[in-house]
Design a protein around this nucleic acid. Structure first.
Length: 581
RNA sequence: GCGCCCGUAGCUCAGUUGGAUAGAGCGUCUGCCUCCGGAGCAGAAGGCCAGGGGUUCAAAUCCUCUCGGGCGUACCA
């Protein structure tokens, strides 16, 4: 409809003098439905070029349009509004045709082809394996997976990738934390191994100290516990596992390698299973180590050096970001010879580019806000097309419990994990909750509310509408009724609520396309809410069972189309569409 | 101090590339169950879109300043 009108108007305007060649006709959906289904503001845009009042231009355009381009299969009426808008009302014929398309396409309805033949990669979560995923990672995971789904629906071949770093200081601290907890576990007086001579010896020299937890309560740890160690209970759990597999045999080990390895693999498998609970499966787990092994990190530094963008100062290598719009330069290699994370990050993005993706989407938390521009600068200098990169920065989740804020960090003992959230809220509710708001807004996640919200949550409203349709259609077919998808049948749908519902249904493809294009899943949740509302409104004013058979058959077809649309929308959001609740 | 994000109904938030009378949900108040699922429907109240200035035929939207909140601002990851 939109394309048809745009083309028709564009062609109408070619007959007008004084219209700029590159003039673009804009069509928008009016806020007020009384103004029609689509409107254009081009008379106002043209007023300056043509030096005439908008409403006069509007009248001329309408006359020419009616004479040359008007097609009653699409347009029912064209009117000029006071200000100079031209309003178009869709013909019902057009609506029924689109509705028939929905019934025909079924599971595929809503797909389009903007990305066909192109490959996209969405990089998300990308949490290092130092602890379980938190509620904050949940937002990242849901946004990333939903964006990936959206891109698939507009035709992209999508790869979901998780980038991680399991080496370096961070992991050593992790290993040391586990080791220290291991010592602490074995020092417990009532431990089953307490009579083992090695454990007795260990207890004689064992000492403790106190650290402050996130909630300002002191936590007792072994003296060997690192000052910046990871205090979470999951560390102790890993330590207990090691005790049960290795007993006290590791007490005299000088290194923390074993502890690090066990911690790493335990944590990673937990992360995978947490993601799985949300219905998320990654295609590729990309280890940063690979970039060192294949020389990409060094190559990147050399390439930048060749562009004369690197200099040495105080033993470190600096990237001349001050030449690229930043107020200061940035260290890429520290005096110790170890690169900062920015260098491998640039190398990583080059790697992604080289793998030939047409679109690279990155989902970053607000803490990356200052770092990704450096990556783009690096790529820019090396002549990579940064237009292919779409960075989504989402703001943090503020977690509250009974109005009190809880700070989230994997280093502190007191944080809420995504798993803990999923114990209480279903994956469906969790996914909807994280997807329903604009990414750049802070998300206040009140745990108390989330836990008790099940009956208020909008996701239930959508699922309920779907379940109700299914149940009603089942009942109808038991009564021997059958939906009629034929064009003649659909023309019986003329009630206000029916027309409103049809209009909502047939805008799914465009809505999905817009959400994909802007990487904004939350618009889809708003759309689905409107769809469910339109349906329940129809459902309450139009009966199906007990109506004349032809009308009932048409209304069943409309209900079916609603169910298809709801189901497909929910599928993109990764939410189930139950037939019964 | 500097950079980025945010400020819209009592609360949580939508608001397409600037468009017509700024919209939902929750909460509050009125109605509606002999009837396909009341986890519902219909309606009401509730707003100087943080504030000032500017651009435009047109600003919640763009520019600028002020105020308020968040996240960064490490040779930590």
């Amino acid at each position: 409809m939109k394309e048809y009108l745009k083309k028709a108007l564009q062609s109408t305007l070619t007959t007008f003098p004084l219209v700029p060649d590159d003039f673009d006709v804009e069509l928008s959906v009016p806020a007020n439905p009384d103004h029609g289904d689509l409107a254009t503001n081009c008379p106002m845009k043209l007023a300056r070029h043509m030096r005439r009042a908008p409403h006069l231009i509007a009248n001329e355009i309408v006359d020419a349009f009616l004479k040359n381009e008007y097609d009653p299969a699409f347009v029912e009426s064209v009117t000029v509004a006071g200000g100079g808008f031209i309003n178009f009302k869709c013909s019902n014929t057009f609506l029924f045709k689109e509705l028939a398309l929905c019934l025909q396409d079924q599971d595929r309805y809503g797909r389009s082809d903007a990305g066909v033949g192109q490959r996209a990669m969405v990089e998300f979560v990308s949490a290092n394996p130092t602890g379980p995923l938190t509620v904050g990672h949940g937002r990242n995971a849901v946004l990333g997976d939903t964006v990936a789904n959206l891109l698939e629906w507009v035709g992209y071949e999508v790869t979901r990738e998780y980038y991680f770093n399991d080496a370096g200081r961070q992991m050593r601290v992790l290993g040391a934390s586990v080791r220290s907890r291991y010592e602490q576990v074995l020092a417990e007086a009532n431990h089953p191994l307490a009579s083992d001579p090695r454990v007795i010896k260990h207890r004689l020299r064992y000492q403790t100290k106190q650290l402050m937890g996130a909630d300002h309560t002191p936590i007792t740890v072994a003296k060997s516990f690192p000052e910046d160690g990871y205090l979470g209970d999951y560390i102790t759990a890993i330590a207990r596992d090691i005790v049960s597999t290795h007993g006290p045999s590791l007490l005299d080990n000088k290194t923390t390698d074993v502890f690090e390895d066990v911690a790493k693999s335990t944590i990673f498998s937990d992360i995978r299973s947490t993601l799985k609970r949300l219905g998320i499966t990654m295609n590729i787990y990309f280890n940063e180590k690979k970039l060192y092994d294949n020389g990409a990190v060094t190559a990147t530094l050399n390439a930048l050096r060749k562009k004369n963008m690197i200099y040495e100062k105080d033993g470190a290598s600096w990237f001349k970001t001050s030449h690229l719009g930043k107020s200061s330069d940035t260290v890429l290699v520290k005096g110790t010879g170890e690169p900062t994370y920015r260098l491998p990050d640039i190398a990583y993005h080059i790697d992604k580019m080289e793998r030939g993706y047409d679109l690279l989407v990155n989902i970053f938390g607000a803490d990356h806000i200052d770092t990704y521009p450096d990556i783009l600068r690096g790529l820019d200098v090396l002549k990579y097309d940064t237009d292919r990169i779409h960075v989504m920065i989402y703001q943090f989740v503020t977690l509250t419990r009974g109005g009190e804020e809880i700070k989230m960090s994997t280093r502190m003992a007191n944080f809420v994990t995504l798993d803990e959230l999923l114990e209480e809220a279903t994956p469906d509710v969790t996914r909807y909750f994280f997807a329903m708001r604009s990414p750049q807004k802070h998300l206040e996640f009140d745990l108390n509310l989330a836990l008790e919200a099940s009956d208020k949550n909008p996701v239930f409203y959508l699922q309920y509408a779907h379940a109700r349709i299914c149940s009603m259609l089942t009942k109808a077919s038991e009564l021997g009724l059958e939906a009629d998808h034929s064009p003649e049948s659909l023309t019986l749908l003329v009630h206000d609520t029916e027309i409103t519902l049809i209009k909502q249904i047939i805008s799914l493809p465009e809505t999905v396309a817009q959400c994909a294009q802007s990487c904004e899943p939350h618009r889809l949740t708003a759309y689905l809410r409107g769809l469910a509302e339109a349906f329940t409104s129809f459902y309450h004013s139009c009966r199906i069972l007990g109506e004349q058979p032809q009308l009932a058959a048409a209304r069943m077809a409309l209900s079916e189309a609603t169910a298809i649309t709801l189901r497909n929308g929910l599928k993109i959001l990764g939410i189930s569409a139950p037939t019964r609740m």
